[in-house]
Write a protein that binds this DNA or RNA. Structure first.
Lengths: 145, 145
DNA sequence: TAATTTCCTACCGCTTTGGTAGGAATGGTA
DNA sequence: TACCATTCCTACCAAAGCGGTAGGAAATTA
């Protein structure tokens, strides 16, 4: 299947909430989960990779929470998905030719390599700021706070 | 993971061999397996979906085998992968908005929808004839039979 | 009849997925 | 100091998907 797992999907929504909250200090995982209607317990699993990849910052203890480690316009969907789902290549042989002794002359391998590039480029072309802008634009009439 | 399973990968190679053999009558699965260094037993599983999708024709019994149901230039990688891997959407919500009550205003969903389009377009832009041409071009110096 | 090949169904071990759960470590607050 | 809220780490678990193997029936040719 060419399918995202819930890690990538929920992770993107988690990061979107942090982007919406950017500049307002740390945000509780509990609040992110509530706003996105997700399980806190499950979101906890997405945090460590995002943190080690330096995409988010965490503050422990009471009054703790999470915030983006960079500006929303400096974080692309590519980074987020890459961190949570792993590399984009449709076939391992694209990046590890040695695993198949046909790599040097396999014509389908070229297709998979090109596919990786288009997937990567598409995800790289969207930043968290784009999502925030799109969201705010769609909600201008009803936003009050 | 955003990964092709062996169904799509092996299926593409199976179809490529049939394209190479196009016009020469039915080809044995045994021979395809030998040329691509794959298991006959496993390739057997890829045949039914390809056949019901009218991409290949089969002839049973002795002197049987498989052949393309259409000209190589009329079969794209998109069709092959679609048949063997299922739809390309990274998230189910793209094509079935009802499974998530946030679909109408979810900003990440738009990303997944765009990603589906680029994957689909990339795969649709390559036909089996392209693969055959590429292969023959790379092997002109050493081809003899 | 015999050989060959497709075709259909079942099975199996392994990994991944999508969580739940317990509890330790940390930091703010009274 | 004690308490509480929160992050953080590790383990666990059921279900599904993956990558095959296997047996044998049906069809076709010779």
């Amino acid at each position: 299947m060419i399918r995202l797992s819930t890690k990538g999907k929920y992770g993107a929504r988690l990061m979107f909430q942090l982007a919406l909250n950017y500049g307002n200090g740390p945000m509780l995982l509990k609040e992110i989960a509530a706003r996105e209607d997700l399980s806190v317990r499950y979101l906890e699993h997405l945090v460590p990779p995002l943190r080690t990849a330096r995409l988010i910052l965490s503050m422990r203890g009471s009054k703790g929470g999470y915030s983006l480690a960079k500006k929303p316009q400096d974080i692309t969907l590519k980074e987020i998905v890459r961190v949570l789902e792993g590399p984009f290549y449709p076939s391992e042989c694209v990046e590890a030719p040695d695993i198949c002794n046909r790599s040097s002359f396999c014509v389908t391998r070229n297709i998979w390599a090109e596919l990786e590039q288009t997937i990567s480029a598409t995800l790289a072309s969207h930043t968290l700021q784009d999502l925030v802008d799109e969201y705010r634009k769609a909600h201008t009439s009803e936003e009050s706070s």
